[in-house]
Design a protein around this nucleic acid. Sequence first.
DNA 1: GAGAGACTACTCGGATACAGTCTGTCCGAGTAAATCCGG
DNA 2: CCGGATTTACTCGGACAGACTGTATCCGAGTAGTCTCTC
Lengths: 162, 162
Amino acid sequence: MILKSQVEWALHCCAILAGLPEGRYLSTKALAEFHGLPKEYLSKALQSLSQAGLVDTTLGPSGGYRLARPPAELTFLDIVEAVEGKARTFVCNNIRENNPCRPQGYCESGPCPVARIMWEADEAWREKLRAVRLSDLTEALALDIPADLWKSSFEWVLERAG
Amino acid sequence: MILKSQVEWALHCCAILAGLPEGRYLSTKALAEFHGLPKEYLSKALQSLSQAGLVDTTLGPSGGYRLARPPAELTFLDIVEAVEGKARTFVCNNIRENNPCRPQGYCESGPCPVARIMWEADEAWREKLRAVRLSDLTEALALDIPADLWKSSFEWVLERAG
DNA sequence: GAGAGACTACTCGGATACAGTCTGTCCGAGTAAATCCGG
DNA sequence: CCGGATTTACTCGGACAGACTGTATCCGAGTAGTCTCTC
């Protein structure tokens, strides 16, 4: 059970978009070039973000993506779920129904206890992701990255933002 | 990102094995029949448990599996990791290394902040699974299942336990 | 110089292909209990 | 009746195949700016 690499890409791209000045867009091409990723496939991840309503998009030249909401109102969970889907990581096939001792027509009272526990863990994971805002990430990145690299990256992006 | 169905199977099988009297074994065939699962494929899940040291096995007739430890000393995480592996659900490909502004030979100071956050969520998930013991599951099952079904199932298993 | 039309650069979506994993099946090797057979 | 050989029932591991998902590429349709051409 491993998350797709698109999740990683989407998170990094959102971090870049978070630094974009109000009203500017950044193209898939620029984002792909900045991260060294295949443009065509990266666009699938960005399309997922777009379909989830996390980013706005404009067509035509100087078109591209920008965040639909301020970074403080976007959580990691939003982004992860946009790419990976909202489905739970554990699916219950109710194999308890196959119990040979089970009386005919017996109806289960509720979700299988096994599933209940797995779903609680899944919820703990999501809760942790829900608690981290995109703005928290950019703050962490600002501390992590040397100031000059931070500045030159910002300028690199600005040059390409329409 | 969905866990394999083998995880579900392994959890249910462990719950059955937890009810087995001291020193008795239960065969793959019986476990597969009880849960309505393909015997050959279920054996893969049980082999994973065996390789992880969670269950003991004996060959020959009246052979099969039994828990290697008391149910109170087996956690959900043990079982999930035995089947699914211990690898983190988020892998960091360090795409920040491709930043075109990054100076040559620049060495990252530590793990990528994005990965750090994802790994914390992963750890929260595992922590939740670590907190649930197999004995907790059997207690929950005892409450969930009607007493007569519980009893007849136990007898069904005992008949086949060598 | 202004407006209409052509052009360009981009997003979006579908089609396609390939690889890896998940699911499932089959079979042979090895092992331990049960059975059989000879003394 | 006893001990050794055979049979049986099971685990274990590898080989294999099909379905599905993840990764990746390509191309056509649509759109918004830009450019060009004409008046």
